[in-house]
Design a protein around this nucleic acid. Sequence first.
DNA 1: TTCCTGCGTTTGTGATCACATTCGCGCGCA
DNA 2: TGCGCGCGAATGTGATCACAAACGCAGGAA
Lengths: 190, 190
Amino acid sequence: MHGEFRPGESLTLRGIGKMFDVSMTPSREAVRRLVADGGLILSASGRVSTPELSNERIEELASIRALIEPELASRALPRAHIALIERLQTINGTIAEMVAKHDDVGYIRANLEFHRTLYLRAQAPAMLALTETVWLQLGPTMRALYARLNRTEVPHNHRLIVAALRAGDEPGLRLAVRSDVTGGLRMLTV
Amino acid sequence: MHGEFRPGESLTLRGIGKMFDVSMTPSREAVRRLVADGGLILSASGRVSTPELSNERIEELASIRALIEPELASRALPRAHIALIERLQTINGTIAEMVAKHDDVGYIRANLEFHRTLYLRAQAPAMLALTETVWLQLGPTMRALYARLNRTEVPHNHRLIVAALRAGDEPGLRLAVRSDVTGGLRMLTV
DNA sequence: TTCCTGCGTTTGTGATCACATTCGCGCGCA
DNA sequence: TGCGCGCGAATGTGATCACAAACGCAGGAA
């Protein structure tokens, strides 16, 4: 999910086991879970690798994000106290640090934390879980994107999201979230 | 997904293994996969059971269906030839049979097949997979519902869906799908 | 009757093994 | 130089085992 693996990277059960000092059994269970969620793909012969998404698939996943995430943001809006908004601004600060350090994985992690922090307020665990499933599928691909473009600042849409939250502007919030979600992924499709 | 298990039913790895004449290992992997998708829940001590959904959770899952499924139907609409529409009507016939036989599991299975057949035309595999994840979570609960109410005919909304497809009526299709999806689940919340 | 306490049984966990399949690299041939 | 064949290494699969934890039922105390 955080882009620690590149698209198409292949993994082995024994290798994963060594990473975490466990035997093959726990590796297999973890892999099975990730495969179920689309975070890893299983070849016909049972080999495991990170997904290499086609452009169509990327667009589809972006559509799903554009469908669900504005809804989550909208549900979070009535419950967004000032403490939450400040927390989001702090995370934006972290994002700025990651941009400065050119830490791609850190950037993705902080970016997703921004969204998750907001959506947690929606009190919609199943919807959030579904969204995280989509993030999981996009992880390796997002890494490939952010490594390519050279960001200089925090995404503009994050500031728009915070502003809309402050103003209680529901349509503005939906639009800002939608733009933030589709904006980054649009440049993924080569 | 098809409601073969009641909500809160508990399963054991060794028991599942016996069902399919395999050892614990394949059972564990299958269970892990279903747990990842929310089709089964894992207690703190590792015991496995089917989920007993709260009313809030049922409403949330219904919202997700109401959000995604009209989108899938809408994407399928331009590609819905006459052959597809006839296939949907055939499935409606199967549903009528299941109603007559009071076969709850068969009813759920045919009902989901109706939706899946339509959505497959949307050419959106990730979106369909997400939707099936939701169906999976609702499976045991749907069984509990359909066993309770005594249906006498095919759901009216299924006929509306077919009519909207024939007419190429996109707003009507979205509405019919949305009604079909939320209608059944509304009476679940006791 | 109700609650608590033990204890035997059931259950999940992680490790390990044998085996069939597949991969990938190098050799040899054209 | 390019292509196909073959063999050894690597990999996933399913089974089994030892062990610790949890469960659930029975018996006893209040």
